[in-house]
């Protein structure tokens, strides 16, 4: 299936590039650049919108891919999903640079490092390509759209509040994140630290990094439990961290004594919610995020300005847009508990 997809993509790319490159591809690109986006402005089926996740091979981004594919089917155009196999800064940059050379209509990332794609984005804009980010923001001045899953405040605060409620507002707690270089994870941790000031009897004893890796998170979780005997709760910041921490608590026989929460998706955390080790986790619907992202980028491509509140065909409710930060917001974060863990994303 995957093969069929990239052969089809290759064929598509073939016709486009052949049409554009009679002599020097560089010269052709330069000429075709702005004309390209202008010419096709009303024919959205010719748009090719690319997204480079932090890494491929994890369900969270696969869900975003599914959502964007669904939007592409509904609104027209082609969605291109391509990314490194580990959350690598250079790998992500190479994918973005290649997509720009391929002259897609729009390219976006979930950034592994906020600044690393900025030189590429500058080149893309020169070539008339729309640039955007979703899930993990870039720091580039010229970024044209940021599709945010939920505000950093919303996510960080809800995680801390959830944990505080479970452990009745007192005890030692630890935070385990994937990487110290990921923009979104770092901003959430910053928010969490701020929110913790509201709970004077909660003590943050350690912040650890375990990569986008479940077994590593399990190991780190177990060592934290050992190192801090009064540990009452742990927050996993990336979707891969929470199941590892939950397993560590379970293996230590501390289920019910040490609470685990954090940001992760129902498909990943379901077994631990069902057996009660984890009571609640914080998330948004990544499939909807992918869908909203594709729709939002189409609006930019077609020069349809956003309103303060936008209706999106195929999604329930209204979606806020903040012009100052060019932010399109999915909505408040979702609390996933035993009651709604059967959501499929």
């Amino acid at each position: 299936m995957r093969r069929a997809r990239w052969i089809a993509t290759a064929a598509g790319a073939a016709t486009l590039i052949m049409a554009m490159a009679p002599g020097s591809a560089q010269a052709a690109t330069r000429k075709a650049g702005p004309a390209h986006s202008g010419h096709h402005a009303k024919v959205s089926s010719a748009y090719r919108i690319a997204f480079v996740p932090k890494l491929i091979g994890i369900p969270y981004f696969t869900s975003m891919e599914k959502g964007a594919e669904a939007a592409a089917k509904r609104f027209g155009g082609k969605f291109i999903y391509e990314g490194p196999t580990t959350a690598s800064v250079e790998g992500q940059d190479e994918d973005v640079a290649t997509l720009i050379k391929e002259h897609v209509s729009a390219v976006g990332v979930s950034a592994n490092a906020a600044s690393s794609v900025c030189p590429d984005y500058a080149n893309a804009i020169k070539a008339g390509i729309v640039v955007y980010a979703s899930d993990s923001n870039v720091s580039c001045k010229d970024n044209e759209l940021w599709v945010e899953q939920a505000t950093n405040q919303g996510i960080g605060n809800l995680a801390v509040d959830t944990l505080a409620k479970e452990i009745k507002g007192s005890g030692d707690i630890a935070i385990v994140s994937a990487g110290s270089t990921a923009t979104n994870l770092d901003s959430w941790i910053a928010v969490m630290k701020k929110r913790l000031k509201r709970y004077p009897r909660l003590h943050l004893v350690s912040v650890q990094y375990a990569g986008e890796n479940i077994s590593q998170s399990e190991t780190v979780g177990a060592r934290l439990i050992a190192a801090y005997p009064k540990l009452k709760g742990m927050i996993g910041v990336a979707s891969t961290n929470v199941p590892g921490l939950a397993e560590a608590v379970k293996a230590a026989g501390d289920a019910g004594k040490i609470a685990v929460t954090g940001e992760t998706d129902p498909n990943t955390i379901r077994p631990w919610i069902e057996d009660g080790v984890v009571k609640a986790v914080v998330l948004w619907n990544p499939t909807s995020l992918g869908y909203l992202m594709y729709w939002g980028v189409l609006q930019v491509l077609e020069h349809h300005p956003f309103k303060a509140e936008n209706a999106v065909p195929g999604l329930p409710g209204k979606y806020e847009y903040f012009p100052a930060s060019k932010t399109l917001l999915l909505g408040p974060p979702l609390l996933i508990t035993k009651a709604n863990v059967n959501l499929n994303f």
Binding site: W6, T9, I56, I80, E82, T85, D95, T98
Partner: peptide, 16 residues
Amino acid sequence: LGYSFDLANANSILET
């Protein structure tokens, strides 16, 4: 190898 696979939007693991 890497570049043409990227350009074809192939899954980068194929390249590996």
